[in-house]
Computed example of a mutant assay.
Amino acid sequence: MVYWKKNLLIVWICQFLAMVGMSAIVPFLPLFIRELGVTNLKDTAWWSGLVFAGPFFISLFLAPVWGSLGDRYGRKIMTLRAIFGLAVAQIIIGFSQNITQLFIGRLLQGALSGFLPAAMALIASNTPEEKTGYALGLLQSSTAAGTVLGPLIGGVISDLFGFRFVFFSVGGLLIAISFVLLILVKEKNKATGEKKYSLRENFNLVVQNKILLISSIMITFAALGISFVRPIFVLYVETLHLSAKNLPTVTGALYSIVGIFSTISSAWWGKRVEKIGLRKSLIIASLLTASMYAAHAFVQNPYLLIPVRTALGFGYGALLPLLFTSISNNVSNERKGGIIGVGSSFQILGNMIGPLMGGFAVGVIGLRQAFLITAFFFVVTSFLSYKFLKK
């Protein structure tokens, strides 16, 4: 097997397992916050947003730093550092005794992790340019596929064994993944080190290059949109009058529906973007995502959420791999890690402010209205694609 395909296969499997673990935590985190003593709905929504955003406070600044270091010393070592740091953080979070300790643990996670952009830079720099769209689309499908099983598994395990057991299990899984990457992944296209680009130089390149800048801004809006309602989704599901006993499992299943069709979508769009065109693909995917988020505001029956979440997954699954492909294809190989790191900071910015805005919005306008705001962010993404990207 060609080495870049072997790397892609191994990293796909490892990223899939990592996302199974990390997304296993998502459905019950607001319920874990309640277990730590925060019981008021408004306070739970606010703390859920803050805890979800916690890792991004730190990684916003560190992602481009790790990317630049990857360009200098190798993307594989940065990938290993990130996955092992993520494991340590989950174990520490599992020992949290109050909401403050949980928040500090999430901040530590942001400082130590950065696995997804590191893995993306590793694959992008070791894949032929004409295959980058396919490779990053397929890699993104591993993230989506992990969200298929992760929330469902996390919901079931937390129902059976408690919330803390999930954190410890995820930590152990991530440690095992780090050893697989260490042994099996080969990095051939390391930077020569003849020219070392600083964080400032990489950021300036993104700002001065219209395609890189617009793509990065759209990454922010895409991340902001989905993270806006992520921490309060379980509270939204509660409004559908389900049994409290089954709430984590049902929420996990609804997350998994998005994951299934994001997996299909990422691979499908990755193969067809050369025929359809990046601009048209992004417009279609953004509008589909916007309409499905808007539909959440009006659905009263959990069964009606199934087709809505299906279409949502197919639309959203296309966005990030297409946008990062746009970045990767417009930068030289020796700078891919640093520039993808800057692009990841734009994504982290959206992930950071989204939960905070969402938690605040619920307290002001209500749960269902928050989904209409989310839809607006994806309408903006569609407009930016139409206005500024090449046909």
Rank of each mutant, 00 (worst) to 15 (best):
E334N: 15
L320I: 14
V11W: 11
I157D: 00
I264A: 14
I340D: 06
A318G: 11
T239E: 15
V206D: 05
Q101H: 13
L305P: 08
F167C: 00
L174Y: 09
H241G: 03
I175P: 03
Y316W: 12
W4T: 04
L384M: 14
A24L: 01
S344G: 12
N333E: 11
L160P: 01
L160T: 04
F383D: 03
S48I: 06
G110Q: 01
A222L: 06
V379F: 15
Q347N: 12
E130I: 10
L108T: 07
L312E: 13
K390P: 08
W269H: 04
L50I: 15
V51C: 07
F203D: 04
K6D: 09
L247E: 00
L242P: 07
F168Q: 07
P55C: 11
A118T: 05
T79V: 13
V26K: 01
P128Y: 10
F233N: 03
Y293T: 00
G70L: 09
L173H: 03
A89I: 05
S48G: 13
D71C: 05
V38G: 05
F179L: 15
F57W: 15
S178L: 03
I232R: 00
W12S: 15
L182H: 13
M78I: 14
V20C: 00
L50N: 04
V331L: 08
F165S: 12
K196P: 01
V331E: 10
Y73L: 11
M78K: 07
V156C: 00
I183N: 12
L139W: 06
F378R: 10
L8V: 09
T251Y: 01
Q101P: 05
L319N: 08
S227V: 00
G193W: 15
A290D: 00
R272L: 12
P64W: 09
L80R: 08
V229E: 06
V185N: 10
V180Q: 02
G105H: 13
A124Y: 05
V299P: 04
K271M: 10
L199A: 08
S345W: 08
M19I: 09
T289L: 04
G155E: 03
G171E: 06
I226P: 01
D159E: 14
L184M: 13
L323A: 11
E201H: 05
I226V: 11
V170S: 00
Q140V: 00
I219P: 07
G150V: 03
F61M: 07
K391A: 13
A223V: 02
S326F: 04
F221N: 05
Y255L: 00
G137P: 11
P248T: 03
W47G: 07
V156G: 03
G155M: 03
F377K: 02
F360A: 12
I214G: 02
G359H: 07
L112E: 01
I91H: 02
V234H: 02
A45Q: 08
P321G: 09
F165N: 08
A222Y: 14
L367V: 13
F376H: 06
E129L: 14
P355W: 08
W66P: 01
S243E: 13
T147F: 14
A223N: 12
T325N: 14
K195M: 10
R34N: 12
S158P: 05
L36D: 01
G343W: 11
T100K: 07
A124K: 06
F168S: 10
I10T: 14
L17A: 15
A24T: 04
A63M: 12
V273W: 02
K188R: 13
A311V: 15
A111K: 02
T100R: 03
